[in-house]
């Protein structure tokens, strides 16, 4: 790499460190949140620079987008309930000094140990490359996610489901209806929603051969949902249909895995010939579930399926 790319990388890395520093030390939590979102955007650039476009997509959609929206929303709730400014700037006192020194020492050691890693590391790239033809897809990341390490992904979807359950448990109440959306917002929503759905579908489909996949698609889809909610607040109640959709992705994934196991293979062992279609099927189901999951995480729930007030 030439020095020019190094400049870019150095600037980007420097910015990231600076952002991390500032977002932790700014006394205003709102600004910290904004910096956090910015941090996410810049991070996705870093992923790009590191040849990880899938991660970049996810970071942009989830890390910056969904998380940002969630934090903003939480900030608002805190504002409404109590002072969000309880956060004091991090003045240095003795424990913090000790902590800082320790963390610095740890960081130095971390850096040193990373730099002293033996060269010639190949990772699993060659193994991956060798296994790719049997994976049913072209994008090695998707292959890893849904085939080689599909089990991780299954559990990951479980985590998403659990987050919804947790939010439901907490009876997170909906925001009081905001002022009716203005015409600009209506137009914006109308303009943005269709492309969002399309982009989500595109990302899902593209996942097989190019960066993209269920999570990214779901995040974009969810962004649409959140947008809609922001314009016209609706409540995703803990209703049968909602639960079915939430559980759908996980159930499909699990049942596919189990079916394959009962058919003589191993759990989640996708047969080479059907791997592609199975992955697409799982991803589709997962995307729908995950999208709704994100929406629920954002919207929260205050009503159970019987329609009784639960707060």
């Amino acid at each position: 790499m030439s020095g020019d790319t190094l400049v870019l990388d150095l600037v980007l890395a420097g910015l990231l460190v600076f952002l991390a520093w500032r977002l932790l030390t700014l006394s205003d939590l709102f600004k910290a949140t904004v910096l956090f979102i910015v941090f996410g955007v810049l991070l996705s650039l870093a992923w790009v620079r590191l040849n990880a476009p899938d991660v970049a997509l996810a970071e942009a959609a989830i890390g910056a987008g969904v998380t940002g929206a969630l934090v903003l929303d939480a900030l608002r709730r805190l504002d409404a309930r109590g002072p969000a400014d309880e956060a004091q700037p991090l003045r240095l006192n003795l424990p913090r000094l000790v902590g800082a020194l320790l963390v610095m020492g740890l960081g130095a050691f971390l850096l040193w140990s990373v730099l002293s890693l033996p060269p010639g590391w190949r990772g699993l790239s060659s193994e991956t490359a060798a296994a790719m033809p049997r994976s049913g897809v072209v994008n090695p990341v998707t292959a890893s996610l849904l085939n080689f390490r599909g089990y991780d992904t299954l559990l990951e979807i479980a985590v998403l489901m659990l987050a919804v359950l947790g939010v439901w448990t907490l009876n997170a109440e909906p925001m009081p209806p905001a002022e009716p959306a203005g015409p600009i917002l209506d137009v914006l929503v109308k303009a943005l929603l269709p492309p969002m759905v399309v982009v989500a579908g595109y990302l899902l489909w593209a996942g097989g051969h190019a960066p993209g996949g269920a999570f990214q698609g779901a995040a974009v889809l969810a962004a649409g949902g959140i947008l809609l909610h922001l314009a016209r607040p609706f409540n995703v109640a803990n209703r049968g249909v909602v639960r079915l959709v939430i559980g759908f992705g996980f159930a499909v994934f699990l049942l596919v895995g189990l079916t394959l196991a009962t058919l003589g293979g191993r759990f989640l062992e996708l047969p080479e010939r059907h791997a592609g279609i199975l992955i697409l099927m799982i991803e589709t189901a997962a995307m729908i579930s995950i999208a709704l999951t994100f929406v629920v995480l954002f919207v929260g729930n205050a009503r159970d399926n019987a329609g009784r007030d639960t707060s």
Binding site: R122, L124, S125, T128, V141
Partner: peptide, 8 residues
């Protein structure tokens, strides 16, 4: 090319 596993 980079190892895809860490990406996953």
């Amino acid at each position: 090319p980079p190892d895809p596993i860490p990406h996953a």
